[in-house]
Design a binder for these strands. Structure first.
Lengths: 147, 147
DNA sequence: TTAAGTGCAAATCATTTGCATGGAT
DNA sequence: ATCCATGCAAATGATTTGCACTTAA
């Protein structure tokens, strides 16, 4: 598990202040073992500190994202989820049917990255993708056309 | 340019009705040469038919997407854009700095698709990605850290 | 005829913002 | 003492929905 302190120090080094709210937000993210939405974080922090306000969450998540401490991922559920930035990066496979999620490490995209750099002069951020599709179990049903 | 008729016939074949609204929506999409948001479509259709309502747009776009006639893409601008489904598929390279967009055809992702199928038993929809990064011109500035 | 589609207005809901207060440095 | 960060409440804005009316088939 990652520790909040490491990110708090990082923020301080970048010239930002260390506040209890930021600490609580980071603790919530570090203590979870997956993706959290802004609302998840609010719920968790409020168990200890009920007057906790949502603006701080959004502002802090923006800050953490900007500095690369967390990665936002949009799983197409109408809200963004956040996760501690991992080394190496990874991507998420999401089954459109059963919703099951799996992770793949960044290596899968290395050929793509190279090709884009070489042939298109484009330097992609292939950090954190949500890749939709069908898992093996649900694949059989995929062939049926939309209703 | 694609013609609305081909999609209207497609809808009819799937058991849906042909309405003037659907025709106007498809015409707007076909006549544009790129991505349109729901709001873009509303604006365009209202030039001819001012009482045109937004619900029809959202409902029709959902229908067209479900049948694979259009592809939605989220460029991270807070709204979804739609484009006629192209053969072959393509993806979009979006520069985070200058916003310039370029297209890459689906071929770039073939190795990824194969690997996911083979190693993960996962059948991805790699139809229409927005890939963020930096174009060659803006790449130089990328190394600077966030403010 | 009749179920599907539309128009309208209101609801949703994640995220953002203005501004006065508070607190980290 | 600064001025960055928070709390609150209101605003935003894309998308959705309920429902009565309309219309394509």
């Amino acid at each position: 598990m990652h520790h909040p302190t490491e990110y708090l120090q990082g923020l301080r080094q970048k010239g930002h202040r260390l506040t209890p709210q930021r600490e609580m937000i980071l603790s919530a993210i570090c203590e979870s073992n997956g993706h959290l939405t802004a609302d998840d974080i609010i719920t968790r922090v409020r168990k200890r500190y009920p007057q906790f306000n949502k603006s701080a969450v959004y502002r802090t998540l923006e800050l953490l994202t900007r500095h690369g401490f967390v990665n936002p991922t949009d799983f197409g559920q109408g809200c963004v989820t956040y996760e501690i930035h991992q080394h190496p990066h990874h991507h998420h496979l999401v089954c459109r049917k059963c919703g099951k999620m799996a992770e793949v490490d960044e290596g899968v995209f290395v050929p793509v990255e190279k090709k884009l750099r070489k042939d298109f002069n484009f330097f992609p951020d292939l950090d954190h993708f949500a890749i939709f599709g069908y898992c093996s179990k649900c694949q059989a049903a995929e062939k049926k056309s939309a209703r």
